[in-house]
Design a protein around this nucleic acid. Sequence first.
DNA 1: TTTATAATACTTGTATACAAGTATCCTAGT
DNA 2: ACTAGGATACTTGTATACAAGTATTATAAA
Lengths: 242, 242
Amino acid sequence: MTESTEFLYPQKWLSKASTGDRVTCELRMQIISGRIESGAILSENKLAADFEVSRSPIREALKVLAAENLIRLERMGAVVIGLKEKDIEEIYDVRLLIETFVFERLVKIDTKELVRELSKIVEMMKIAIKYRDADEFSYQDILFHETIIRTINHSYVLMIWNNTRPVMESLILLSMRARFKEKYDDFTRIIKNHQLYIEAIDTKDRNLMIQSLHQNFDDVQGKVEDLWMSQQMLSKGVDPEK
Amino acid sequence: MTESTEFLYPQKWLSKASTGDRVTCELRMQIISGRIESGAILSENKLAADFEVSRSPIREALKVLAAENLIRLERMGAVVIGLKEKDIEEIYDVRLLIETFVFERLVKIDTKELVRELSKIVEMMKIAIKYRDADEFSYQDILFHETIIRTINHSYVLMIWNNTRPVMESLILLSMRARFKEKYDDFTRIIKNHQLYIEAIDTKDRNLMIQSLHQNFDDVQGKVEDLWMSQQMLSKGVDPEK
DNA sequence: TTTATAATACTTGTATACAAGTATCCTAGT
DNA sequence: ACTAGGATACTTGTATACAAGTATTATAAA
């Protein structure tokens, strides 16, 4: 395998991470980006050799990726499932489910501090755009939503978020990198939509929030198309299933 | 530690399971039942000695339990979080969230086969009651809901279910065992409620479904109180937090 | 008595070794 | 030519070994 020496996952996000976490994140990116094609069979020994680590962190990574539905652990080897279009829609089903639930809780509590925090994050996003830093922008985008979710202090909703976040993160990273190269002016719209979201929370306007969520969803649809493009760029021959 | 030689998790459910899975299930039961008190600090070496296995399957188990929010992995040792009353409520928030979502999909498709399957499961539950088999009853109860959820073929909703199922399973097991000893006539009500659920799906009656879901939730509230009792029986001194 | 420091006994993370099981391929026999 | 059977080279699951880091405890000095 002509393994590219480049890493897809931002290395600076892994400053304090263990080898296992590094492998997990990198493998996830390679699967979602399509660099590792769906249907491929991964062997622990081979991966260990490729990553130049022992089998321990590899096993750890495979367990995590299996829980994320990206691979399927079988008797002999782990087969790569990858993300189909249907999966991406389903992830956003879950996000809509979560965030509407969260909003119902938010309208009952004081959100002044949250709004302040979110405003700060949007400012950061603007800076990231200004300096063409796709990874930083992605980071703040994810942080935005995570901040909202954490506010309601619901450990099991947070658990769901934690389980879907890594895949979301990878999707957003890949999409944003592609956009910074091609559709730079998309970002003003994204910023605007986030500000709409903040306003909805601030005024506790349920309709505005729903509207903003759907807008965000539409944005994401765009992201998905971008991702598809970037996948086609990265991988040699993607066979479009179904 | 005066480790009881008895296993809490049904051994026959582990016929083909690896050592890692066995440890995971047993540890989970011990934490949820309160046999391992919340706040306790678990060390991999100690657990390995207690279970008479190596650290590998123990590590595996701890990772899983951490993802389920039952323990928190720290630098030195894993601290047991356990289930507080709030957590149990939150689990059922998630279940309500999932099952209402699922129902919205169910009303759009043909559910004849599903209804047949569910009826079969309820028959099995009746037999389990007749023979006072709490574990078998629990198994069918969980299977009932999982069957419904699997029907809509939504991999990410299924993922959420998979993430909450183990804890649910433990809760139900402990609760049902207690009930078979004390509140035997509860089961006619539970059966009735499941039949109501089936009817709601069959007639695609949204209101009936909501009603049945809430009834189920109330049932569960009872379950929770039972669990609390059984916890107090099992563990010497539970300190009621908050 | 109290504080600073060093030795010690723990902890986790990773690498390696071993055992049991499975697919593959090659050979022998018909 | 084709099938049966066995050797072989894989696979995962578990045990063990080792390295690096952290809390604790004991000791020594003020």
